[in-house]
């Protein structure tokens, strides 16, 4: 066989693999949009569910999801960024540091249902927060920590060493250097990582199953100690537990969930591309 022919075959296979990666995404979006778009009405987004969730809207589930996601970032972002700063700027390369890194990698690999059970044991039962937004948000926060720490560390590491050097030579202390010469330049990268992790959290079902999710609530949550309806769990219920529900409602719910996640990802991409434009150092 000629070299050029071999090359063409190799390229074709590589290209095919790439296309196959994209295919499921396109299919999922296509099926959800095709079956769900008719169900997306203003009422569907802003109304309470009625008729045993067969009619009405998904408003409380949207609100619950947003509550949960926002609260979880309040816990995980500061903690994750501070841990990343410690690991990247202060930690010496010793056994403890290596153990911490190993723990972070492993934390990222724990399956989400285990997080759910852990949250149930620690926050719901032991700390007596009950099945509540607080418990759910804390569980999601722990699940997100490794992602945020890793993204933040990468963002910090991409700030050139010379920035730190100049800063120290100008008489800034180590902390002032981090505060004024490193963190400000790492923030876009940190935010990108945080948003991506949030998008993932918004779509997770298992960690919220035992810690926050309500089957049905006739009202919106009033405080962080209330249960809440949450989109992924709501979708699971209406797809499996409730007979005679229209296909359109199910797909429309999936549409809303995917839409929220997609919007967040788009935000992350925009921030990242802006960062790339700015970052010429």
């Amino acid at each position: 066989m000629k070299t050029t022919t071999k090359q063409k075959i190799a390229f074709s296979i590589l290209f095919l693999c790439t296309i196959i990666v994209v295919l499921p995404v396109v299919c999922i979006f296509w099926i959800i949009i095709k079956n769900g778009y008719k169900g997306i009405t203003w009422q569907f987004i802003t109304a309470m569910p009625t008729e045993g969730m067969r009619q009405g809207g998904v408003y409380p589930a949207i609100v619950g999801t947003l509550y949960l996601v926002c609260l979880s970032i309040v816990f995980s972002l500061p903690m994750g960024v501070m841990a990343a700063v410690y690991l990247n700027e202060y930690a010496k390369d010793n056994l403890l540091t290596r153990l911490i890194r190993l723990a972070i990698v492993n934390l990222a690999g724990v399956s989400s249902v285990v997080y759910g059970l852990f949250g149930l044991a620690l926050f719901v039962t032991f700390m007596k927060f009950g099945v509540s937004i607080l418990s759910g948000a804390l569980t999601l926060a722990i699940m997100n920590l490794p992602v945020i720490i890793t993204a933040s560390r990468e963002a910090l590491a991409s700030v050139p060493y010379s920035f730190r050097e100049v800063s120290l030579s100008l008489g800034l202390s180590r902390w002032q250097t981090i505060r004024h010469s490193v963190l400000p330049f790492a923030i876009p990268g940190i935010l990108t990582g945080a948003i991506l992790s949030l998008a993932r959290a918004a779509g997770e079902t298992a960690p919220i199953l035992f810690t926050v999710a309500a089957f049905y609530l006739p009202h919106l949550p009033k405080s962080i100690f209330d249960q809440a309806m949450v989109l992924p769990y709501h979708l699971y219920i209406i797809s499996t537990q409730i007979p005679n529900i229209s296909r359109e409602t199910r797909y429309a719910t999936a549409f809303v969930l995917v839409g929220i996640v997609f919007t967040m990802n788009i935000f992350a991409v925009i921030i990242r591309s802006r960062l790339r434009k700015k970052k010429k150092w």
Binding site: P160, S162, F163, E165, V166, L168, S169, L170, G171, L172, S173, S181, F185, K278, K279, K280, W281
Partner: peptide
């Protein structure tokens, strides 16, 4: 005194390194 020292003793580096 380290901060004091570095205020008193400035440094210019090999590669021009302004902040962005």
């Amino acid at each position: 005194d380290l901060v004091k020292l570095r205020k008193k003793v400035g440094m210019v580096f090999q590669r021009p390194n302004p902040f962005p």
